[in-house]
Every structure is written in structure tokens, then in C-alpha cells.
């Protein structure tokens, strides 16, 4: 068994029009920039995939990564908690023009909905959002004298995830706070594709340090020196690069 995929292009080849795609990361931390850019490359060449629903904590920053994916017009709906950033213009303009749908979810509810999706739990009750605009239409139940609202699981066709080390079985470690939503999204997608800084042999990762067990991972692609969104933005990068 070897889950290695040779190229980024091949890694994103199964994502079709209309699919729901979870994209890991919190802002730029843990964002799989190269996988996103590979998806954009495919769109530029083939005009597919399009009409995607994307699940991410944010809505992109600048003109790289998720923001670039949105800028291409590939995303029709975003499910996120905080569609603001240092430079949110790409999403903001499309949203205010009514060209992209937004489902706003409190951050902890977003995390738990994804976890529930991966864990086979169709719904759960949470105090978060009770009595607010974001609870409208959701069933309420009282437990031990306190009101809770019912939230539903969230699942996806694909997850695009960034990890640090991955062995060929798909066991993963993450770098510092780049973990964030990534392990949850690995669980909640039909097909999880992970970019890792280094693909190692089974046994090279101490089982005590595995964060995501390989059962949640379908494919791995090596990106030895991944770009950081923050660094690209400080250099005013735009993807795809404009050819003069």
C-alpha cells in the first residue's frame, strides 16, 4: 500500500464541478497553497472544476490560495466563520455583488460540524449561537435547564489539507498551529488529499506522535518547501501570475 501521488496536477484531478471541497488552514497557517494553485491551473486549462462549495475558516487573503480560487470564479458558495482578512477584497466584492453565497458559521460550530461529519454523528446540540441571528430556524432543546440549538454535520467530497510529515500509509503530523482544521477535514471528506513537506516510510513516524491516522487519508503529494500565504502576500503575489 502506497498512497503517494506523483504530481499536484494528478492530486486534484478528481475534483468535479459542483463538489463540496474542504480546504484546511486558519488564515495562511496550514493552508494547502500548492494544492489550491494546482486546482486553479486545471481550471485555467480546462474551465473545470467550477460551481464549487468551499469550506474554510476564512475567505482568503490577497490574490493567492483560497482568494485566488474565489477570484477565478470557481466558487459559488463559501461556508466559513470569518470572511475577513488583511486584504479581503476578492471575496467582499463578489459577495456584495451577490455573486457568491455565504453560509456563516460560528468557528467552534464549524469545527464540530466537520468533526461530526467525519465521526458519523448527523447532528448535535450546542449552546453557541442560541438567541442570535445565526440560530434562526434551528431546533432548540433544553438540557439541565439551559437551551441548546441543534446543528448538523458537515461532509465533503474532497478535502485539501496541508500536513508536515506523512508516511506512505497516510499517517500525518502537523507543524505547530498549522494543525487547526486540517485533522478534522481529513475525517469528513470522501477523499482526502494531503500535501506534506516530506513523504516518509511507514515506521519513520513514531506512532505516539501521529496526529491523523492514515485511515482518514486517501492521497499524499510531496511539496518540499510549501509557500506561506503571508509571505506571498507581503510580496504582493498574484496567482496565476500575470504574464506580461
Amino acid at each position: 500500500m502506497d498512497k503517494t501521488i506523483a504530481t499536484l496536477r494528478e492530486a486534484v484531478s478528481g475534483i468535479d464541478d459542483g463538489m463540496t471541497v474542504m480546504i484546511g488552514g486558519f488564515g495562511g497557517s496550514g493552508a494547502p497553497i500548492e494544492l489550491i494553485h494546482a486546482l486553479i491551473d486545471r481550471f485555467v486549462q480546462t474551465r473545470h472544476p467550477t460551481n464549487l462549495t468551499v469550506v474554510n475558516n476564512n475567505a482568503g487573503n490577497g490574490h493567492v490560495g483560497l482568494a485566488a480560487l474565489i477570484e477565478q470564479g470557481m466558487v459559488s458558495k463559501l461556508i466559513c466563520s470569518f470572511p475577513r482578512s488583511a486584504d479581503p477584497r476578492v471575496f467582499t466584492d463578489l459577495y456584495l455583488a451577490g455573486k457568491i453565497e455565504l453560509e456563516l458559521v460560528p468557528q467552534g460550530t464549524l469545527a464540530e460540524r466537520i468533526r461530526a461529519g467525519g465521526a458519523g454523528i448527523p447532528a448535535f446540540y450546542t449552546p453557541t449561537g442560541y438567541g442570535t441571528d445565526l440560530a434562526k430556524g434551528k431546533p432548540v432543546e433544553e438540557f439541565e435547564g439551559r437551551p441548546y440549538i441543534r446543528e448538523r454535520w458537515l461532509k465533503a467530497d474532497f478535502a485539501l489539507v496541508k500536513a508536515h510529515l506523512g508516511d506512505t500509509f497516510g499517517n500525518l503530523t502537523f507543524n505547530k498551529a498549522a494543525r487547526n482544521f486540517n485533522p478534522l477535514m481529513c475525517m469528513a471528506a470522501q477523499t482526502t488529499i494531503v500535501q506534506v513537506s516530506s513523504i516518509v516510510r511507514p515506521g519513520d513516524i513514531d506512532p505516539e506522535t501521529v496526529v491523523t491516522p492514515g485511515i482518514f487519508v486517501q492521497g499524499l503529494v510531496e511539496v518540499a518547501e510549501p509557500a506561506q500565504e503571508e509571505t506571498l502576500n507581503r510580496a504582493n503575489a498574484v496567482y496565476p501570475e500575470v504574464v506580461q
Binding site: 495562511g28 488583511a86 468557528q107 467552534g108 469545527a111 507543524n175 506561506q228
Partner: peptide, 30 residues
């Protein structure tokens, strides 16, 4: 830039730090 806070600002680590994923993070909260 893999080591940021909720405001997306870079931070450092004190001795005794722990990392965890988002579902555990909000289990701590709720």
C-alpha cells in the same frame, strides 16, 4: 507563519505549550 494567534498575528511559545486541533480547542471553550 504556522505559529499565529486568532488575530492571525505571529506569536512565540512559552515553555509548556500544547498544540491541538480546532475541535479540541472549542471543547476547551464550550
Amino acid at each position: 507563519w504556522d505559529l499565529i494567534n486568532a488575530g492571525k498575528k505571529a506569536v512565540t511559545l512559552n515553555p509548556g505549550t500544547a498544540f491541538f486541533h480546532h475541535a479540541d480547542s472549542f471543547a476547551m471553550v464550550r
